[in-house]
């Protein structure tokens, strides 16, 4: 009964990969916090890009999204990014207007 529903077709990931991903994450985090702290030019764009890179690493490697089939990857990524992106973009569009009116 134990292995009912377990599925071992997934490729085995060696610890080396995880160590590499971890190192990358550390570098990204360090750079992100540094950029924010020092306030370098293009910091906001940079932080957002680094954030997405980190999110990619965590979801694709740690959450094994990489090993899912393409339609699932697409649904997860698009489902979340599009929905949140639209919500954000459209209400911020309105927010800009509100602040302009109050000036």
């Amino acid at each position: 009964m134990e292995n009912l529903g377990s599925h071992t077709q997934e490729p085995i990931v060696s610890p080396k990969t995880f160590i590499l991903v971890w190192v990358l994450l550390m570098i990204l985090t360090g750079f992100e916090i540094f950029a924010a702290y020092k306030g370098i030019p293009w910091k906001n764009e940079l932080i957002l890009a680094l954030m997405l890179a980190q999110a990619y690493l965590v979801s694709f490697y740690f959450m094994h999204l990489r090993f899912e089939k393409f339609p699932l990857i697409l649904s997860v990524v698009l489902g979340v990014l599009l929905t949140v992106g639209l919500l954000c973009a459209l209400i911020i569009w309105d927010g800009i207007h509100i602040i302009q009116l109050s000036r």
Partner: peptide, 17 residues
């Protein structure tokens, strides 16, 4: 994730206004 997404969208909106 969409719940947190909504919260962060709210944060950004409130920050903008």
């Amino acid at each position: 994730a969409l719940l947190f997404g909504s919260f962060l969208a709210v944060y950004t909106f409130e920050r903008f206004i």
